[in-house]
Amino acid sequence: MFLTEKNLKDLFWKYYNQKGRAIKHQFECEIREGCSDLVTIEKYQDNFQINAFEFKLTDIKKVFLQAEENMKYVHKSWIVIPIEKKELILNKYFGYLKEKKYIGVIGVEEGGRWSIIHQPYFKKDLIMNQAIVNLMMKGY
């Protein structure tokens, strides 16, 4: 059981990016009003992929709204939750996830191990956003 969203975020990030899968990343990225918790730029099968992550312990309805808003600007929008919420997601929100096909769900165990609960599709068309351009250009 996670005490805070920060604990969830920190532990997930430690294990998610263990092998440097994210070429660039930014926490609290201003891709929308209220910021996305984490945005990454990753290379997958010779293509670049932009992902947004929202972390939530309890307010599941809110996290879906946040992920849906992020979808405009990223290839995949992820919700990251404690693994204990897996059954709730599969039982209550599966239809919603099928409809909003670019939103995925990741469950995180207390030890940091994470697994994909729902795999999203890859969205090809994005709205370009200044915060993402800034992230891509960081270091140049």
Rank of each mutant, 00 (worst) to 15 (best):
F2H: 00
L3G: 03
L3R: 09
T4V: 06
E5C: 09
D10A: 12
D10T: 11
L11K: 13
W13S: 14
K14Y: 08
K14A: 15
K14I: 11
Y16K: 06
K19G: 01
A22S: 15
K24I: 01
H25V: 01
C29A: 09
C29K: 12
R32H: 06
R32G: 06
C35W: 07
D37H: 11
V39I: 11
K43D: 11
Q45K: 13
I50G: 00
N51W: 03
A52L: 02
E54N: 14
K56R: 09
L57W: 09
T58L: 08
L65T: 06
L65D: 07
Q66M: 04
A67F: 08
K72C: 06
H75T: 08
K76M: 12
V80A: 04
I81V: 10
P82A: 03
K85W: 02
K85E: 01
Y93E: 01
Y96G: 07
K98D: 13
K98M: 12
E99A: 15
K100E: 13
I103R: 13
G107H: 11
G112Y: 09
G112N: 08
R113W: 07
R113P: 03
W114F: 12
I116H: 04
Q119W: 03
K123L: 07
K124R: 13
K124H: 08
L126K: 04
Q130W: 05
A131W: 01
I132Y: 00
N134D: 02
N134T: 02
N134F: 01
L135S: 01
M137C: 00
K138S: 02
K138H: 02
G139T: 09
G139I: 15
G139Q: 15
Y140S: 02
